[in-house]
Structure formats: structure tokens, C-alpha cells
Design a binder for these strands. Sequence first.
DNA 1: CCTTGAATTGAACGTTCGTTCAATGGATTG
DNA 2: CAATCCATTGAACGAACGTTCAATTCAAGG
Lengths: 196, 196
Amino acid sequence: MARKTGSHAEITGPRIREAALHLFAQHGYAAVSMRQIAAEVGVQAGALYAYIDDKQALLFHLMESHMEHLLESWQAEAAAPDPLARLESFTRFHIRYHLDRPDEVFISYMELRNLAPENFAALEMLRRRYEGELEQILHEGSAAGLFTIADARVATMGLIAMLTGVSTWFRETGRLGRADIEQIYWDMTRRAVGVA
Amino acid sequence: MARKTGSHAEITGPRIREAALHLFAQHGYAAVSMRQIAAEVGVQAGALYAYIDDKQALLFHLMESHMEHLLESWQAEAAAPDPLARLESFTRFHIRYHLDRPDEVFISYMELRNLAPENFAALEMLRRRYEGELEQILHEGSAAGLFTIADARVATMGLIAMLTGVSTWFRETGRLGRADIEQIYWDMTRRAVGVA
DNA sequence: CCTTGAATTGAACGTTCGTTCAATGGATTG
DNA sequence: CAATCCATTGAACGAACGTTCAATTCAAGG
């Protein structure tokens, strides 16, 4: 028995990435087998290799395209006029983006150690680029005398950790909606950089 | 060939936990084999089972004792007189404790999904208990009119994520020392809760 | 209707996994 | 110095792993 109905080439590829994304996020890269991914797609394990080189490349491409899409999406945001507005823009964008993609976020922060060294290096570059966007804003706001920040790099790492963390506990059915969360985190962020 | 020199029973047990801690933190629970752990200890894989029930129990006990020790250590800190001093105490304690135990921290935040359901539940209880300590401080400070916080629960999650994140990027050889980091994070924390 | 090509199967590959257990041999005890 | 103890070995178990590939089946093109 080979394929059952119609040509699936353009369908199966994305479905594999979808299934892998979901399963990696839920159980972790190392704990998920190619056969589990295949089963989720409704296909035999061997068929996956018509679409991917190997398991490692599958993980890397998921993480890489997440980071690239994150960067593109941020670039596409309208540039705000002053540092404070840019910081608010970044904060709200980051939370919104991360709440919309819990699986990608989880993988990109958890599976770094399962990347082959060259893949890890490539991913790190993208992460640094994104962190650099926030660091830049903090520098500008600091230079303009708007923010009170002892160290822009540390503040960047602290704020990103705080903002990203939201996706580990936020539940769609919870007490607070996205808009509430966004506002609360923006208040904390603004105050953390010394703006009343 | 059996054991080579002396009685090792009281030595091997801790060494297994040490090796597992280090390897789990570096490569992830699912990616580490019992044979790797045994090799690190200098023993055959079968010998591990004189000290642990199975791999899952090994992971759970590492995480459980980390959380229990964390809670005990916090309880042992001198109780500060007012909410602001307590918040500073908590912030500095949390950072210091987490910087001293990067492996335990990594595992306890990364390997939750590899716990069997009943173990996960037990671990969650301990985490909630610890988070509750901070939440309580925020509530008290809020009630006393000292802090400006929209939602104590969200603030708790935000602050813990920020503070815990320090162990993902801090390097002993880096630009800043522990005391610097502690101070910078305390400044951000204090400001985040609306204290100038 | 027959051919071609692509998508998929299903079996097989060698390896590694967690775990068990009889056998072993050094240390301790009397 | 013999007996006992017990930490550890080393082989073995069945299962699962990632990956390969010839064979198969379906859809499309002439």
C-alpha cells in the first residue's frame, strides 16, 4: 500500500513541522521519536525523510524559522518616535508574539542544548540580534536621560526573561485576558527602567 | 572483578546524584543514558540500581531535594521587619541561591515535562509554596501602601522569571560580579513594584 | 489506456536504551 | 584464616531508536 488519495507533497511537509513542533514542545526533542511524529501526521516513519534530512535538521529549522519570523515581525512594527514609546512597543509586541506561539517559544528556549554546535551558533546569533533590539532602546533611553538603568545589558536580560516567562504560566481560560497581562507587564517594565 | 578498594556504599550514592545532576543539566534528562551516568561515576550501569529505583526516581529526587532545600534555606533567612526589607531580602537570596546552583536550577525548570504525573504534581506543590512566599510579601507591601502593584500574582511570576533568568547568562568570568548583579536586579525589582 | 514519476509503505539495518540478576571478589568479622 | 557480607560486574533481555531503500500504489500526461 502506498499513498491513498491524491498528491500530498505540499501538505505533508508543513504537517510534519506542525506535528514536530507540538510534540517537541510537549515532551522535548530527545523524548520524541520519529515514529511518533509520523503517527501524528498519519504516515510511516520512512516517509518523513522525503521532507527532512534528519531529526536534528528538523529541530533546527523549527527554531531558526521561529527566530527569523520573530525578527521580521518586530522590524515590521511601526517605529515609534521616542525611546519610551519604542520600549512600550517592544514590550507589548514581545508579549503578544510570545503568547500567540507558546510551542515555538518553549522549544527555542529549551532545546538549545540539543542543537549541533554549528546550529547552536547560528541560533545564538539570531537571539543576540533580537536582544540587541531591546538593548539599543535601553541605551537610547538612558542616553536621553529618560531611563534610570545601571547596566543596559543586564536590564535587557532581566526584562526579556520577565516578559518571555509569561508564556510558561498564561492560560487562555485564566483570570486575566491578554490585554490585562500586556498592561501589567508594561507597567512593571516601565517602572523597572525608572519611569514613573 | 567486583569492587576494587574499600567499601564505597556511602560514596557511590552521592556520586551518582552528582553525576546525574551535571549530565541532566548539560544534555537533558531524556538525552542522558544510565550508562553515561555510570561511566561518570566509574562504575557499570547495573550498579546504579543498588542506589536508585529507576531513572525517573533519580530525576525526581534531584528536583525534589533542590526545591526542599531552597524552601528551607529561605525559611532560615532572618525575617526582615517590613515588606520592603523582606522583598530585598528575598531578591538577594533568590539570586545568590540560584547563582550558586546553576545545574539544579536548570533541571528544575527544564525537566518538569519529563516527570511522571504524580511526581510533577508533588514538584508543582513545592514551587507554588516558594512562589507563595514572594506573593505574600507583595500582598503585604501592597496592603501597606508601600508598593504599586496591579496584580500580586502576575508580579510574582514576572519577578521570579526575571530573577531566575540570571542563571542562564551569568558567567563567573564575566564583566560583572555577583554583588553587581545582585544590586542591579534589586534596583530593577524595587522599581518594578513602584518604589523609587 | 499506457507510461511515467512522485509519494509512501513496510521491512530491515545496526545501535542503543533501561533494567535485571547470577556470579564475583575484596573487605570485614569472629 | 575461614566465613560472611555486600558492592559491583558483565552479560543478557526485549524494546525502541534513527535511518535507508526496494517495492508499491496512485495521479497525471501523452
